[in-house]
């Protein structure tokens, strides 16, 4: 089977084209779907296997990034989203999409074994620098995370492009609970550390941590590992020619798509597509 991906757009989402493209590069079919087509019932979320909420500036980030789109989804698509999660279908939110998932309460979501309750438990707030920035960061994934999106991935470089990417929760206990479940799936790390040994709870200095996120958190998953969100943009390194240092390296063939020019980010999307294929 060929998994079908719903890529949301409208109201200022703006990474919909490339998000659709990366899913198609790893063997899915993807549709750009205006949020209102789902709300109106023209299209049904249940007809899709994966939901992607791409990056962008929904409603201009006014009243807090992701808030207004999150509200529309929380109030108008509640049942459809709940059934989607209960059916065990993967969801990803990237950048603004992550903000949306956090503010709808889908991330980090309730404790294991519970259906989504749409209660907001964490937030993403203004970067400590006070500035929106586009800069490349180094990420490391928790190998024990239940997240189905990041299986087998250790370290990745990709850009962050946000002004509100500092992940916070009301108390250290809240984060400890997520950490214990390995839901702190991806963190900013110092690139000079050996791969696999970069993750730390100590706050990294700017710009290694571009936003001052608690415990250098770049992305989290829910208790099932199916719903995943992150501030950095893995789709922005779908091909190696998008890496800032690609002129330094010979164009020797590597494995993967794009005649050996597959970028590190594509694996994340392939993981979800393969997951869906194996389940069916």
């Amino acid at each position: 089977m060929t998994p079908r991906v719903a890529v949301l757009f409208g109201f200022g989402i703006n990474c919909d084209h490339e998000t659709k493209a990366v899913f198609e590069l790893v063997g899915a079919t993807a549709d750009r779907l205006h949020v209102n087509r789902l709300i109106s019932g023209d299209e049904r979320l249940e007809d899709y296997d994966i939901l992607a909420v791409p990056g962008g500036f929904s409603f201009g980030d006014h009243l807090g990034s992701g808030r207004l789109l999150g509200n529309r989804m929380r109030f108008a698509m509640r049942d459809a989203l709940q059934s989607f999660v209960d059916a065990g279908k993967p969801i990803i939110g990237i950048c603004n999409g992550f903000q949306v998932l956090v503010k709808t309460g889908l991330l980090p979501g309730p404790e294991a074994g519970h259906s989504p309750d749409f209660i907001q438990r964490g937030s993403l707030t203004l970067n400590d620098s006070g500035r929106y920035e586009d800069r490349w960061v180094t990420l490391e994934f928790d190998p024990e995370s239940p997240c189905i999106w990041t299986k087998g991935m250790t370290r990745m470089e990709c850009p962050v492009r946000h002004g509100e990417g500092k992940y916070v929760m009301p108390s250290a206990d809240d984060i400890d609970r997520l950490d214990a479940n390995h839901q702190l799936t991806v963190r900013y790390v110092d690139p000079s550390t050996p791969p696999g040994a970069g993750r730390t709870d100590e706050a990294l200095p700017y710009p290694l941590s571009p936003n001052g996120s608690m415990r250098n958190i770049a992305g989290i998953c829910d208790a099932t590992g199916l719903v995943f969100g992150l501030m950095p943009h893995p789709e922005a390194i779908y091909a190696r020619w998008l890496h800032p240092l690609h002129t330094r390296h010979d164009s020797e063939a590597s494995s993967g798509a794009l005649d050996g020019w597959e970028g590190e980010g594509l694996q994340l999307f392939r993981n979800a597509v393969e997951y869906v294929k194996q389940r069916s």
């Binding site: 990474c15 490339e18 929106y132 920035e133 586009d134 800069r135 943009h233």
Partner: peptide, 11 residues
């Protein structure tokens, strides 16, 4: 650096 210079994944 405060401009997004790589949205659309093409730069």
């Amino acid at each position: 650096r405060q401009y997004d210079h790589e949205v659309i994944a093409q730069t």
